[in-house]
């Protein structure tokens, strides 16, 4: 599965870039993230609960940030293993300046799914993947807006 999207985020590119890489923000925005801890340089371990409606599964994930080029570009790689199967997703994020001190975030992603989820869920997988990924960025936008307000 693959896809792309974009989102307008409040704040300057540099601030947005730093915020997106914060573990606190990652934890807030990743679906069902109960725990996130740093295990290395740009590497995190997390427990995620991912799914749609009642159809959810727990995954142990490692999140790796690569090709980090402040403040324009980075790659995020997520490997999740759980009972329902595994997920390998890669997202490439590019930031650019917008007017009004806003930033344009553009993302492309590829995702591969294996196990039970792939063999039973193929009907909705593509759409649900799109949803989960855009959910992350929607939550990120919300969080950044919240921070703007409280600043």
């Amino acid at each position: 599965m693959n896809g792309n999207g974009k989102m307008e985020l409040p704040g300057l590119k540099e601030d947005v870039f730093n915020s997106l890489l914060e573990p606190e923000l990652l934890q807030k925005c990743m679906m069902g993230c109960k725990k996130l801890e740093k295990i290395g340089e740009n590497k995190y371990a997390a427990d995620l609960s991912v799914g749609i409606a009642a159809v959810k599964g727990k995954y142990e994930a490692t999140i790796q940030l690569e090709d980090v080029e402040f403040p324009n570009h980075y790659k995020i790689i997520v490997h999740g293993e759980g009972k329902p199967g595994f997920v390998n997703a890669e997202g490439v994020i590019d930031l650019s300046d917008l007017e009004n001190e806003e930033t344009l975030l553009e993302y492309t992603y590829t995702a591969e799914v294996g196990g039970k989820v792939a063999s039973i869920g193929q009907r909705m997988l593509g759409g649900v993947a799109k949803l989960i990924i855009s959910d992350f960025f929607k939550k990120a936008k919300k969080e950044l807006q919240r921070r703007e307000k409280t600043d």
Binding site: A54, V55, K56, P84, K116, G121
Partner: peptide
């Protein structure tokens, strides 16, 4: 928790452990 009515959609999901309410 989860409501169970006819179960025609939900019971397979439950049995396959795609949902664990």
């Amino acid at each position: 928790g989860k409501l169970l009515a006819g179960g025609q959609s939900f019971i397979p999901i439950l049995n396959m452990r795609m949902s664990e309410p």
